[in-house]
């Protein structure tokens, strides 16, 4: 049996709103989502904005980059790095972050929210 989850696509911003190879914070209700445009790879990612290490709303202001082929973001506070694909912490900590699907359609960027 499969559990089916539907995804609601939330329109976050225009595709040229984001700085290239960087992130910005998107408000979704009371939540904060970090959205990244990885221009070099032409890829979009979204994660929670809060860094789980010290609970700071800061990931969207972090530097993005890659470790091997894995795209990652580094928190500006203590440089903990997280995979933008799995959300797993790459600097050896147990914590991880939530990631969201992203799609671009007709000049707009949409973040996918799973329905409960």
């Amino acid at each position: 049996m499969f559990e089916s989850k539907t995804i609601t696509w939330f329109r976050a911003c225009r595709d040229n709103d984001l700085p290239s190879n960087g992130g910005a914070c998107v408000r979704f209700g009371n939540e904060q989502i970090a959205l990244f445009y990885f221009t070099r790879r032409n890829e979009w990612y979204a994660t929670q904005n809060e860094c789980p290490h010290r609970k700071q709303m800061a990931l969207s202001r972090g530097m993005i980059g890659s470790a091997g082929s894995e795209p990652k973001v580094a928190c500006p506070f203590h440089k903990k790095t997280f995979s933008l694909i799995t959300g797993e912490c790459l600097s050896g900590d147990e914590c991880s972050i939530k990631t969201y699907p992203v799609k671009v359609d007709n000049g707009y960027v949409y973040i996918g929210i799973e329905n409960e």
Binding site: F38, R40, G62, M63, G65, S66, K72, A74
Partner: peptide, 10 residues
């Protein structure tokens, strides 16, 4: 090579 990171960018 690659995409850079928080070490080489600064």
């Amino acid at each position: 090579k690659g995409d850079g990171c928080e070490i080489c960018k600064p």
